[in-house]
Design a protein around this nucleic acid. Structure first.
Lengths: 147, 147
DNA sequence: CGTATTAGTTTACATATGTAGACTACGATG
DNA sequence: CATCGTAGTCTACATATGTAAACTAATACG
C-alpha cells in the first residue's frame, strides 16, 4: 500500500495511465504515451520494466504479454511525493505556498468546501506562528515574511 | 527572478541556508550542512559550484573566498517545484491532495485565515467538477472518486 | 505447422545526481 | 617574505534517469 521507492517524472506518466485504466496492456500504455509525449515504444517498455522492478506494477500473464495493474495506489504515490516535496521546504513558508497552489490549480466546488471545512477545524488548534526550520546550527534565524 | 533549471534535493538544502542567511560564506554553508546532514566539505563545495552554474547563486569576491547570495528567490523556487509537481498529477485529484498537505503540515493561524479567504473567493467561480486529464487518447476516462 | 506480429528482455549511452578526495591558489600571520 | 590555512577547482565514480535500438520469445493467423 505504501510507496516504497520514489518514481521519476517519466515513470509518473506511465503510472497515471495504469491508475486511470486500473489494468491495461503495454500496448495501451505505449499508444497513449506515443500520443501524449511522442515516446518510442522502447522507451515506454523500459519504463514499464523499471516500474515492475520498483514494485509499482503488478503483472498478470495473459495470452501473449501481460496485464499491468497498479501495485501502489495513486493516492499513496501522490501523498509520498507531495509530502516529500514540502518536507524539503522551510516549514514557516508551507502555508503560504499552499496558497499559491490553490491559486494556480482548478479545484471543484466540493473540494473547496472540503478544504474550507478542514481549515476551519485546523484553525482551532493552529499555532500563532510556525518557525523557520532551515538552520540547525548557531546562525541567525530567518526573518518573518517572504514576499 | 524566475527559476531557470530545476534543482535537486541536495542542492535544495544548500539554497535553504543561503535564502535564510541572505548572504553567507561557503564556510557557513559547510558548517551548517556538516551539522544537519554530516556532509563532507567537498560535497558541499560541489553543490555550491553546481548552483553557481545553474544560476541559483550570486558570488561576490571578498577577502579570500566569496560571499554567496541567492540569485533565484525562495518563493520563485518553491513555486516552480510545487507547480511542477502538481502538474504531474491528475488534475481531478489535486484538490483532494491539497487536503492531505493541509492535514500534514503545521500552518499558522494567519496563514489558515489567508487560505480560507482565498478559498471563499475561489468558490465563487469554481467548477462543479474538474475532469481527469490523464488520458489524451481514446480510452475510457477515469472514474469519479479516489479514496 | 510455419511465419508474421507483438510483447518482453537486453544492451546502450548521454546526462544528472549524490558523494567525496586531491590539488591549487590566494590571503593572512609571524 | 615564507608558509600555512582556507576557499575554490578538478577529478572521480557509482547510481539514477531519459531515451531508445536490437534481439528474442511466444502468440496468432493463414
Amino acid at each position: 500500500m505504501s510507496a516504497p521507492t520514489s518514481i521519476t517524472n517519466s515513470e509518473w506518466s506511465v503510472m497515471r495511465i495504469v491508475w486511470t485504466l486500473k489494468q491495461c496492456t503495454s500496448h495501451q500504455i505505449i499508444d497513449e504515451l506515443a500520443h501524449q509525449n511522442d515516446w518510442k515504444p522502447s522507451t515506454v517498455k523500459t519504463l514499464i520494466t523499471r516500474l515492475k522492478n520498483k514494485d509499482y506494477l503488478n503483472v498478470d500473464k495473459q495470452g501473449n504479454g501481460y496485464i499491468y495493474s497498479p501495485k501502489v495506489s495513486e493516492k499513496d504515490a501522490m501523498n509520498a511525493v507531495s509530502i516529500n516535496l514540502f518536507d524539503n521546504m522551510c516549514e514557516m513558508k508551507v502555508g503560504n505556498e499552499i496558497g499559491t497552489i490553490i491559486d494556480h490549480f482548478a479545484i471543484s466546488k466540493d473540494d473547496i468546501q472540503m478544504l474550507m471545512d478542514k481549515l476551519a477545524e485546523k484553525q482551532k488548534t493552529a499555532p500563532d506562528k510556525v518557525k523557520c526550520n532551515c538552520l540547525d546550527n548557531q546562525y541567525m534565524k530567518c526573518g518573518d515574511d517572504m514576499k
